[in-house]
């Protein structure tokens, strides 16, 4: 598998990606069978909206838990990383320039993504902070700020 490196270095290796990154595709795309039974899935439209939120949250929690668990507090360079990460999450002010640093922190804290199914990636963590801080998004914009978690 190739790593598409750039001067900025944040083009990630494509696989694996967290569920939150691809949730729109997973929810909305795929072959539709004309005769399929929906009986078992009453309320699926509402549930899928929930799913978008819940999956993003769960991924965030998982990532946090992992990050905290793997944190080696005796090593100063790593313990410097987390406050930065937390600050980024709570301020919601993530900009592209912080990505390189976050990437590095993520690598240290999680040892990379060897299991995409946990989906503990920085992207939705950062974006979730936006949806919760929400100073930038009005009520009507809620779904959009939420969907930042996937972008």
């Amino acid at each position: 598998m190739s790593i598409a490196a750039t001067p900025r270095g944040y083009i990630e290796r494509p696989r694996p990606s967290g569920l939150a990154d691809v949730i729109d595709v997973i929810l909305d795309k795929g072959l539709v069978i004309d005769a399929y039974v929906r009986v078992s899935l009453i309320g699926i439209e509402i549930l899928t909206i929930d799913a978008r939120i819940v999956v993003a949250s769960v991924d965030t929690y998982l990532r946090f838990a992992q990050a905290v668990n793997r944190l080696d507090l005796t090593q100063s360079d790593q313990s410097e990383g987390l406050p930065e990460l937390v600050q980024d999450m709570t301020s919601g002010g993530a900009k592209s320039k912080t990505k390189g640093a976050l990437e590095g922190v993520k690598e240290k804290l999680t040892g990379g993504d060897d299991d995409g199914s946990d989906g503990k990636q920085k992207q939705k963590t950062r974006s979730r902070s936006r949806s919760s801080s929400s100073s930038r998004s009005s009520g009507s914009d809620g779904s959009r700020s939420r969907s930042r978690s996937k972008s």
Partner: peptide, 25 residues
């Protein structure tokens, strides 16, 4: 949804799978 995603990820590692829309029973 996570199960749906995982199964398709796993199944398509080496094979070509046409995904069916989530929630199809």
């Amino acid at each position: 949804l996570r199960a749906h995603w995982r199964v398709l990820e796993e199944a398509s590692l080496h094979a070509t799978v046409v995904p069916v829309r989530f929630g199809t029973v």
